[in-house]
Amino acid sequence: MTQVPISWFLTLSAVLFALGVAGFLFRRSIITVFMSIELMLNAVNLSFVTFAYEYKQVNGHLFTFFVMVVAAAEAAVGLAIILTVFKNRATLNIDDMDSMKD
């Protein structure tokens, strides 16, 4: 067997997505949480490219391209937000973000 079943790619994508979700839920460092989101987006991109292969369309690649642009924009804004948070509190632990708890 020299060819890879397409479902392997999709399983890989699902596994990466789930790991991203896990990272988001279990990690406490804001930066790592954000990186988990990037991991999720990467997993989605793999799905898009795999489906593009299945349908032999270039469309899936374009969606991936748009997702990349969005991810880059999110990274710029997100890291700027993280910087302002760090400036005001000197911590990056998500558990310390509790100034509004009653």
Binding site: F24, I30, V33, F34, I37, V77, G78, I81, I82, T84, V85, N88, R89, M97, S99, M100
Partner: peptide, 10 residues
Amino acid sequence: ANEAALKYFL
């Protein structure tokens, strides 16, 4: 406001 932005963003 920082905290709000952070949570909203994440």
